[in-house]
């Protein structure tokens, strides 16, 4: 017997004109798990739509014509879901309004989603807690207080992989610029400058902020001397990065809200492989509901693998 093909959900893009860069990057990540395509009446009805609206009128038009779950990327105007409901006297069919919310990526209203323009796909990086960092350093023969400087003027410039691996095991790091989100995601205890903090909207508990070179070295040394501070920074940083700077998280969040979330579409975490092996051994068809159910029930929340 040949198993039925697995349904891969389709998202249709509705846009008059240029798609904002941030949305384009978000959709490219969504494409890891579903078909993302332009609107075309010859194709089957999509599972969801993502529309770009540059005015309240466009928002209204999208809402009136949406027959499937829809996300609206609002450009230029700031309003809440509640305002839309009030203004148009329409039940809002959209599952989510998305705002490119600058440095702040707070959820605006219960059906809105903020996507930081600084967000990028960070799903390849997993948090390494401080005590496991220490064990890695030991294994690699590195100094117990091995630190890294990335993105600062006097930094060395190893290959990207070198940066990432170094940040993953460092006791602490001085980081600014484009590598800051990666360092935060990896749970690296970070010393950085105020400009970087402001640009990413990092909360005070996520990093150690300094103003000049002298205070940088001082802060770095003080940080290494305080295991409690290191642990607190590491966890707060990783959590912030996962929830606010990772396009993978934002994309999965968006798909979840559109009803498209499907465990197993991402790179398979270990438990899914285990489950799949057990189900295969029982000759369970790929389309069997129990397969989907097992994956859903056993999935830990977003970002936990």
């Amino acid at each position: 017997m040949k198993a039925a093909p697995i349904h891969v959900p389709a998202i249709e893009i509705i846009a008059d004109g240029r798609i904002p860069d941030s949305l384009a990057r978000l959709l490219r990540v969504c494409a890891k798990w579903c078909h993302v395509r332009a609107g075309d009446p010859r194709l089957a009805v999509p599972d969801a739509k993502v529309a770009v609206a540059r005015s309240r009128t466009q928002v209204k038009r999208v809402l009136e014509n949406s027959d499937v779950p829809c996300a609206i990327w609002v450009v230029g105007e700031e309003f809440t879901v509640e305002e839309v409901e009030r203004e148009f006297s329409l039940p809002v069919l959209a599952r989510v309004l998305m705002f490119e919310s600058g440095a702040q990526t707070q959820i605006v209203g219960h059906r809105a989603l903020g996507v930081s323009p600084n967000a990028r796909f960070l799903g390849d990086h997993a948090c390494v807690p401080p005590f496991i960092r220490a064990r890695w350093r030991l294994r690699l023969g590195l100094d117990e207080n091995f630190t890294v400087r990335v993105g600062v003027p006097d930094a060395l410039k190893p290959a990207e992989g070198g940066f990432s691996a170094s940040l993953a095991v460092a006791a602490a790091a001085v980081v600014s610029g484009e590598w800051l989100p990666v360092a935060l995601m990896l749970g690296t205890p970070v010393v950085t400058d105020k400009a970087s903090v402001d640009a990413l909207g990092i909360p005070a508990e996520g990093v150690c902020v300094v103003s000049d070179q002298a205070s940088t070295d001082e802060a770095l040394n003080a940080l290494i001397e305080s295991p409690e501070r290191v642990a607190a920074l590491s966890r707060a940083a990783s959590r912030f990065a996962r929830e606010h700077l990772d396009l993978g998280y934002a994309a999965r969040n968006l798909m979840h809200r559109l009803g498209l979330a499907r465990p197993g579409l991402h790179v398979r975490p270990w438990h899914e492989t285990q489950l799949a092996n057990v189900l295969d051994a029982m000759n369970t068809p790929l389309t069997a509901p129990i397969r989907q159910r097992a994956l859903e029930l056993s999935s830990l929340p977003l970002g936990s693998y």
Binding site: A126, C127, V128, P129, I132, R135, W136, L138, R139, W270, L300, S304, Y305
Partner: peptide, 15 residues
């Protein structure tokens, strides 16, 4: 201190 142990440990802490 092997790679498999360290990754298993990291995953366990996360879970």
């Amino acid at each position: 201190s092997d790679d498999a142990s360290l990754e298993a440990q990291r995953l366990l802490v996360d879970w």
